[in-house]
Structure formats: C-alpha cells, structure tokens
C-alpha cells in the first residue's frame, strides 16, 4: 500500500481541497463496487477511501490555514473541536491532564488553587478523572458562583458534549476574570471552529430576506399552516 495519501489519489502534496475531492470522485467512479464488482477493485476502493480520509482529517486539524501549510503544524485552529486533543483541557497539555498534572500536586499554572473551597476541589478531582456528571451535580450544590465555578462548569459541560452551556459559562468566567489565561484558553478552544467559519463567511454579502419561489403563493391560496417563516 502506498504510504503517501496524495500519491494514492494521483496528486502531489499541497494539492488544494477541490483537487483532492475531484481526484477522489474520479477514482471512486472507477472502482465503486456498484460499478466494478471485482475483489481487486474493492481493495482499491478501501485504499482510496483511507487516503481521502487521511488528507481530509489532517486538513481539518489545521483548518483555516492555507492548503500549502496545512501539512505543517498539528493541532491548529481546529483543536477546539476535540476536548481530548493535545491542547484541549483534557489533553496532555491541558489543566486536567489527570494524575500527572496539578492533581498530583505538580505544575504551578494548574487549576488546583481554588482558594480552599473543598467542594470546588472535589469538582476538580471529578473533572480530572472524567466524571463530568458528578462534577456538575457537585457544582449545583455550591451557591457561590465564582469565576472558577463557571470555568469548572464549562469544562464539565464540554466533556458531556453540552457545547452551548460550555460556551456560556466559559464566557461568564472570562468576563469575571478577564486576565485569567486558563479561562481565555477554554473560551478560545470552544470558538476555534467559529474563527475559521467567519473567515469563509466574509466572502459573502449580508443575506437579505432570503428568496421565495412559491411558498408565499401557497400561503395566499391555501392559508398554509406549515410555512410559518414566510
């Protein structure tokens, strides 16, 4: 099997997204099991799929950077997508790096300094161990909502996939303590995908009221109960 995914697709490194997609489509049409039922074609198709995934997923890691530099660094703007990635709060570099981190009494920048509140310390231990639900339950019993409370709540919600609550609480923590880098980092991670998105969005004009081919006519004719937005 060819180790360079670009070569599998008949491309050279640095090919653009569109070139990768076109090349994949062309090959997929040739080797798709519906079109070419041989065992050889099946293997080839697997190889093509694997190559495509390797390129696309790697690109997604450094989303927002131009195609040329995309092969360079790891964990770019897109790192925020994966809380367990290298730079996420649960990754090896994050504040919740588990037993090697602050929990064991290590690093100075780590989060164990909670001002002596035992319950917040308990929340911290839950988070470090990945017990997000328990962390949230304990947080609910703490009436005093400090910046750290919001930060821990954001981390727990992020771990549970509640990205909306995580974003809200990370924002709250940053507003209460704008100089805390840890809080800011979490907020940035949650919004990393948003940055890349905004970049692409700028190419378009402000959307108007949208367009309406027929549904207004339908409303006039039938007092339609469904198309409420119109």
């Amino acid at each position: 099997m060819n180790s360079d995914p670009y070569a599998v697709l008949g491309l050279t490194r640095g090919a653009s997204d569109d070139e990768v997609k076109s090349a994949y489509k062309k090959l997929a049409k040739k080797y798709h099991p519906d079109i070419n039922p041989s065992a050889e074609a099946e293997d080839k198709m697997k190889e093509i799929n694997a190559a495509y995934d390797a390129i696309v997923n790697h690109k997604a890691d450094s989303y927002g950077s131009p195609a040329g530099s995309a092969q360079g660094g790891y964990g770019g703007a897109y790192g925020g997508y994966d809380p367990f990635g290298p730079d996420g709060p649960f990754g090896p570099n994050g504040p919740f790096a588990g037993f090697g981190g602050a929990y064991a009494g290590g690093g100075s920048r780590r989060s164990s300094n909670t001002g002596g509140d035992d319950r917040l310390n308990a929340v911290y231990r839950y988070l470090a161990a990945g017990y997000y639900r328990e962390a949230l339950n304990t947080l609910q019993d703490i009436p005093d909502h400090t910046a750290r409370w919001y930060y821990y709540s954001a981390v727990a919600n992020m771990g549970l996939g509640n990205r909306i609550a995580a974003l809200q609480h990370a924002r709250e923590a940053v507003q209460m303590e704008p100089n805390n880098m840890e809080y800011q980092e979490l907020l940035d991670q949650l919004q990393a995908g948003s940055e890349a998105y905004r970049g692409r969005r700028q190419a378009y004009s402000a959307p108007g009221r949208g367009l309406d081919f027929c549904s207004q006519l339908f409303c006039l004719f039938f007092c339609c109960p469904f198309c409420r937005p119109c």
Partner: peptide
C-alpha cells in the same frame, strides 16, 4: 450571545461539510 452560539454550531456543520467529497 445568540450569534456566538449559532456561529459555533453552524461552524461545526460547515466543518463536516468540508470533509465530504463534494464538487
């Protein structure tokens, strides 16, 4: 605040879209 949340969500959808071989 809504705009911030909506951007986060649609960015996720768009990122998945960009993974598809759509020409």
């Amino acid at each position: 605040r809504c705009r911030e949340i909506l951007t986060m969500l649609i960015a996720e959808a768009a990122a998945e879209f960009e993974k598809l071989p759509i020409v």
